[in-house]
Computed example of a mutant assay.
Amino acid sequence: MIKTAFRDEDVSWTHVSVWLHRFKDGRTFVEYFERCGRPSSSSNDEVIAKVRDLVTACRRLLGK
């Protein structure tokens, strides 16, 4: 059934094993849970500008 669903795309045994364990634990859907940590929208114009300023300052300090 997995080969039918994914056709030519390679699905590793490790990935299938993870799915199997999740479904055995009672998970009945394939959507991902929200996870804690850095948000996917962490790169915005403000952050990019701050990083650019830090890199420029470090170059000045190092004399490059």
Rank of each mutant, 00 (worst) to 15 (best):
M1L: 11
I2V: 14
I2F: 09
I2E: 06
K3N: 12
K3A: 07
K3E: 08
T4F: 12
A5I: 15
A5G: 05
F6K: 05
F6T: 06
R7V: 12
R7F: 08
R7N: 12
D8P: 00
D8F: 08
D10S: 14
V11T: 01
V11D: 00
S12V: 01
S12E: 01
S12D: 02
W13C: 11
H15R: 15
V16S: 03
V16F: 04
V16H: 02
S17E: 13
V18G: 05
W19L: 07
W19F: 08
W19H: 03
L20K: 14
L20P: 02
R22H: 03
R22P: 00
R22N: 03
F23P: 00
F23K: 01
F23N: 00
F23D: 00
K24R: 15
K24A: 12
K24I: 14
K24T: 09
D25N: 13
D25F: 04
G26T: 00
R27Y: 04
T28F: 03
T28H: 04
T28V: 05
T28N: 07
T28D: 05
T28A: 04
F29Y: 13
F29G: 10
F29A: 10
E31V: 03
E31D: 06
Y32H: 09
F33M: 09
F33T: 08
F33C: 10
E34I: 07
E34C: 06
R35Y: 03
C36H: 13
G37D: 00
G37S: 01
G37I: 00
G37W: 01
R38Q: 05
R38K: 08
P39F: 01
P39D: 02
P39K: 03
P39A: 02
P39Q: 02
P39C: 02
S40W: 07
S40A: 11
S41L: 07
S42N: 11
S42M: 11
S42F: 15
S42A: 15
S43W: 15
S43I: 12
S43Y: 10
N44G: 02
N44H: 04
N44L: 01
N44P: 00
N44M: 01
N44E: 01
N44A: 01
N44F: 02
D45E: 15
D45G: 11
D45V: 12
D45A: 15
D45Y: 10
D45Q: 13
E46D: 12
E46W: 08
V47A: 10
V47H: 09
I48Y: 04
I48F: 06
I48E: 07
I48H: 05
A49H: 05
A49V: 04
A49E: 09
A49S: 11
A49I: 03
A49T: 06
A49G: 04
K50H: 08
K50Y: 06
K50V: 06
V51R: 04
V51H: 02
R52S: 06
R52V: 04
D53S: 06
D53L: 05
D53H: 03
D53P: 00
L54N: 09
L54R: 13
L54W: 09
L54F: 09
V55T: 03
A57Q: 08
A57P: 00
A57L: 10
A57D: 07
A57T: 06
C58V: 14
C58N: 15
R59H: 08
R59P: 00
R60E: 06
L61V: 14
L61W: 13
L62C: 10
L62K: 12
L62M: 11
L62S: 09
G63L: 03
G63P: 00
G63T: 03
G63V: 02
K64D: 11
K64Q: 11
